[in-house]
């Protein structure tokens, strides 16, 4: 896990108000002090082999309040929320929810840190909902490609999708689209828990 040659500069005492741990506790109701670093989460994580920070290391950095390292890590964007870690955690902790909360913090505090493809996907997806109330997959793919720059990936599958009737070419909007827009506006304004 260690990549820095500097010794850890640990903030003294219990989690202070502005510590990342305190923030996570506030948002999720979960106290990272619960974790005793057994690593069972990382042991079962389907994405562990691709992550530079394994799940238990993410929680460890939280305990050490290493905010910059943690929020800049691409690993938090690799979580599939498959809940394997949460289901098996011996401390009834919820790493999946903590990772969701970390992603939310990055988006709010420093959206530039989100990996381009991931952020492209989420933006494209949420734009679809905001525009139509539902996800229109053809539009999603097109919009994702433009945002991510992955223009040619999967283009060869379009004819197959069309032939199977799996891609609608025009979106269908729900009637009460104003409901959805209101939800998006209010959720963007309201601080989470």
């Amino acid at each position: 896990m260690s990549t820095s040659s500097q010794p850890l500069a640990l903030s003294a005492g219990t989690p202070h108000n502005r510590s990342l741990s305190a923030q996570i506790l506030d948002v999720t109701g979960l106290d990272p002090a619960r974790c005793y670093q057994c690593g069972k989460c990382s042991a079962g994580c389907p994405m562990a082999s691709e992550m530079d920070l394994k799940t238990h290391e993410i929680i460890r950095l939280l305990q050490l309040d290493m905010r910059e390292r943690l929020l800049a890590s691409e690993s938090i964007w690799m979580c599939l929320t498959c809940e394997t870690c949460t289901t098996r955690c011996p401390n009834v902790f919820d790493p999946a929810a903590v990772i969701d909360a970390l992603r939310e913090i990055v988006l709010r505090e420093n959206p530039g840190l989100v990996p381009r493809r991931i952020s492209a996907f989420h933006s494209a997806f949420l734009d679809q909902i905001r525009a139509n109330g539902r996800v229109f997959e053809f539009g999603l793919v097109a919009s994702y490609k433009l945002r991510s720059g992955a223009l040619f990936a999967d283009v060869d599958s379009v004819p197959g999708m069309l032939a199977r009737g799996k891609l609608a070419l025009a979106p269908r909007r729900i009637e009460a689209i104003q409901d959805i827009r209101r939800i998006f506006e209010q959720c963007a304004m309201e601080r989470p828990r």
Binding site: M1, C38, K40, A43, K54
Partner: peptide, 12 residues
Amino acid sequence: VQGVDTLSGEPV
């Protein structure tokens, strides 16, 4: 056996 060695940080 799907485990982890937290000292090296590697799934095992």
